[in-house]
Amino acid sequence: MDSRQQQAAAGAGTGGSVPRGRGPSAPKGHRRQYRSQKIAHAVLALFALVSVGPVVAIIAYLFYKGGSAMSWEFLTAMPSKGMKAGGIFPAIVGTFWLILGTVIFAVPVGTLAAIYLTEYARQGRLTRIIRLAIANMAGVPSIVYGLFGLGLFVLLMGLGTSILSGSLTLGILVLPVVITAAEEALTAVPQSFRQASLALGATRWQTIRKVVLPNSISGIITGTVLAVGRAAGETAAIMFTVAAFFLPALPDSPFSQAMALPYHLYTVSTQVPGMPEEMKWGTALVLLLLVLSFTLSAALVRLRFRRKKRW
C-alpha cells in the first residue's frame, strides 16, 4: 500500500479525522516519485522476463521440433541406417559413464582442495595465487581442455581415446566449479562451530569430519550436481579424448571409446546429410532434459537442506 492509499484508508477508518488535504508533503512531489517508481518496476520486470525468455523459448521450441521423435525405442535402441533411424541409446550410456567418471575424479579432488584452502592453508599469498588460478581455469575455453586432454591423457599417458581420458578431461574442466562451490559451502559453516569443537579438544581433522563437512555437505552436493550438468553438455572437451562418431557396441571398460550425447548431436547435425529433422531435435531435447534434471535436482537438494539448517 503506498502512502496515499494508507492515508485514505486511515482517513476512512477514523471517520475522516485525518486531514486529507494537508498532507505532510506536497502531493505533487509524491505523485512524481510514485510514477518513477512504477516505471522502474516495469523496466526491471521486463529485463527479468527477457533473461528467462530464451530458456523458455528454447525448451518450447525443442519440444515442438523434437517432441515427435520421443519414444521408448528412440531412447533405448541402437542407431541404424547410418544414424538415420533407430535410437540414441549408446550416446546416453556413454554420457552416463562419462559423468560417473567425472564425478569420481572431480568431487574428491575438488572437495579436498577446497578443504585445504579453507581449513588448513594459512590465508596469504599462496592461497591467493591458487584461487586466482582456479578462477582462471573456469574461464579457459573448453576446446583448450579438449586439446590438453588429448595431449596429456590420450597421447602422453597413453590412455588412448577412452572414457577414462574423457572423464579426466571433463573432471579438470569442472574442477573450478566443484572447488568454488565446496569452498563456499565450507566457509558458510559458522566459525563458532569450529571453535566449539576445537575447544572441546577435537583435532582440526576431527572438527572437519564431524562438524564442518556434515554442515556443508548440501553445498558440496549442489556444486557437484551443477558440475555434472556442465560436464554432461560438454562437446569440445570430449571431441578428441573419448567420443566416437558411431560404435556398434556399448563400451565395456574405462578404456573403451564411447558415444556421447553432445558429440552425437554435433555429428548428426553437421556430418550426416539427410538426417531426419525430428531426430536431431529429439537428441537435443534429450540432452537438454538431462542437463535440466541435474540443475533441478541441485535446486531441490539445496532447498531441502536449507529448510533443515538453522543458524
Partner: peptide, 19 residues
C-alpha cells in the same frame, strides 16, 4: 594442545551448540 583443551574448556559469548 588437544589434551590441554580437554582439560581447559571454554564457553563462548554466543551460545554455539552444534546443529
Amino acid at each position: 594442545v588437544v589434551e590441554l583443551r580437554s582439560r581447559v574448556g571454554e564457553i563462548f559469548q554466543k551460545p554455539n551448540p552444534f546443529p
